[in-house]
Design a protein around this nucleic acid. Structure first.
Lengths: 338, 338
DNA sequence: ACGACATTTTGTAGCGCTACAATTTTGCGC
DNA sequence: GCGCAAAATTGTAGCGCTACAAAATGTCGT
């Protein structure tokens, strides 16, 4: 058999647009046109080109397209850690508006502990992403020469000049968490706080609400925001304030750490101690954990970020904008009346 | 006349290698050489180029590099769902060998529920990744014309022709889980199984071990592999076999579902029922959940996959290889003597 | 100071694609 | 069947970079 398909030729070079043009008996320009908008060429040629493409197994070279058109139709998303699942909602939110427009979202994580944020960003920029979403704490080094529309999502410190900012109202969220616990009748409330920017805002909101209610706040701040950090902070809290009846963790992962500390002391949730987390991550949604949490509506942040970037791609002269997304309390099974 | 030079203009086009060359007073070729191997040019020029680069904020265009060299120094990784954290170990394993060699790993997920595996793969291929790791169930559509070295990790069905296969010995892992429970004295063992390829192997291994021990196996298979699926399967199991004293879940997420079902019935882990998961995901490692699990050593799979791909990039004629990685039991707090 | 090398630097020619102007084909009224 | 506008198609000139051969410069022994 004389199969011209790619299946049998083991190491031929990847077919190009010219191969397709030759095969279809048209000019390369026509093929290019087909790729861009098939509706604009005659049915006869359209079919011929389509057939040549599938016969050859042709895929356009993004590199060449990028180089020639200087538009990649792709958006970079820099996150801090794949294990912090809050980015998933952000990503889906972005995709929900970008996919239909033919944009692709590219992910890069900062390799936690190695501070590779700059590398991640550079990698994305080197690929000519049309715009950038920074969902990780921006560092000094990246402030300079970004050249593309950028929105920072979820962080509020060290914003690169000229970047948009769409973030969660963590202050308000902190207050919400505190008020929820206060309304349930708790007065011995401990807060497990982390060290990043978001934590600081959540803490501030918590303190404001608690003090407004005339209750003495207890805050245990740790170095990071991981489960271990949450555990350590909770251990400290329970050691120094054994009468605590409610715990507000700066994120769901830390709440898990609190669970561990409580379990180790034989305290049950929510009967002995109520626990509320933050992020409404898949963890919190888990049927087993069933963790009351604050949803920061990252999906909305994603949607907004996408719209914002599209606008800036259209008109780069747009002035940077700052916007807060209101969080929402998600009631589940880990908080109860005192 | 001559162009004004990008030095002071604030909103100019992105600087190119030519701008750097002009600024540094050398030829473009030299700058290219600098980028490739700074050690090969004289110190004088090296410094000049380096300075020009930082003055201009220059970043090489990956698209141009790709086009000109046809090597992107990047590897694509296709995963099924960002929320299934097992890919993180795989990724880190790959990075541990690839990063030092200057390779970058690019991630794409298949958007669970939308079966976008082909799209994810195509996107990566369009970016000219030098090689591909498929950590998601390969589909028919992608079998044709891949053109780059490919290794499938963690799946064993529908392998594209010519692809390497590095996967976990799920059969053996299933047996390990069963034997662990048998050794603890359990004889009423239920298995919560999923519908994908890996689940099938784990189930087979489980059945083999249990039957060898002369114990009657009970398997509850559900449509997917999510926590809800685990919950449903566990509910069925407890309804039909209330005397069950041990549960082997096909993955950690499903184990979480089992926890939920057990909690709903007031059964405690491990006092009433032992639970063992699979994947040794961050979930299992969690201090709170402390889930005994089978570690499929995805990090090793990642390391092997990376080595394999590098070899195939060097010599594309290499014959496809199939390799199994042995899993390991990780003892934690959710299994105990009957 | 002079060849005979080794080392450093440069010019030339694409990589695969798109933009856009130029050209050819088609459709249509009369 | 003719003229002319609209639609369809093609040619030309890069996009920013690298490979590689050619040229320039440097180093050394005698």
């Amino acid at each position: 058999m004389n199969n011209p398909g790619p299946r049998n030729s083991p190491r031929t070079r990847r077919p190009t647009l010219y191969d397709v043009a030759t095969q279809a008996g048209v000019s390369p320009s026509l093929v290019s046109l087909f790729l861009k908008d098939p509706g604009r060429i005659s049915k006869k040629r359209r079919d011929a080109v389509q057939q040549a493409i599938s016969e050859l197994g042709y895929r356009p070279s993004r590199a060449a397209t990028t180089l020639a058109s200087s538009r990649t139709k792709s958006i970079g998303l820099v996150i801090d850690d794949y294990r912090n699942l809050w980015f998933v909602d952000l990503l889906r939110g972005m995709e929900s508006v970008l996919s239909d427009l033919g944009y692709q979202v590219m992910l890069a994580d900062s390799r936690p502990g190695e501070n590779r944020i700059k590398e991640a960003t550079d990698g994305l920029l080197a690929m000519h992403v049309d715009a950038l979403v920074l969902a990780a704490e921006p560092s000094e080094a990246m402030l300079s020469g970004t050249w593309v529309p950028t929105v920072v999502a979820g962080w509020r410190n060290g914003i690169p000049e000229g970047a948009d900012l769409i973030t969660n109202d963590d202050d308000n969220g902190g207050s919400m968490a505190a008020n929820h616990l206060l309304e349930l009748g708790h007065v011995r409330i401990g807060h497990l706080s982390g060290s990043d920017g978001a934590s600081a805002h959540r803490r501030a909101g918590f303190l404001r609400a608690v003090e407004t209610a005339g209750v003495d706040p207890v805050v245990s701040t740790s170095a990071g925001t991981s489960e271990e950090d949450g555990y350590a902070a909770a251990v400290w809290l329970l050691d120094h304030h054994p009468d605590t009846t409610a715990v507000f963790a700066a994120n769901d992962t830390m709440a898990l750490g609190a669970f561990a500390a409580l379990k180790a002391r034989g305290l049950s949730v929510p009967d002995d101690v109520s626990v509320i987390g933050y992020d409404n991550s898949p963890l919190a949604k888990s049927r087993y954990l069933d963790l009351t949490s604050i949803d920061n509506r990252s999906d909305l942040v994603g949607v907004d970020a996408a719209h914002r970037l599209l606008a800036r791609i259209e008109d780069p002269a747009l002035l940077p904008e700052r916007k807060l997304i209101e969080p929402a309390l998600v009631l589940r099974g880990t908080t109860s009346i005192r």
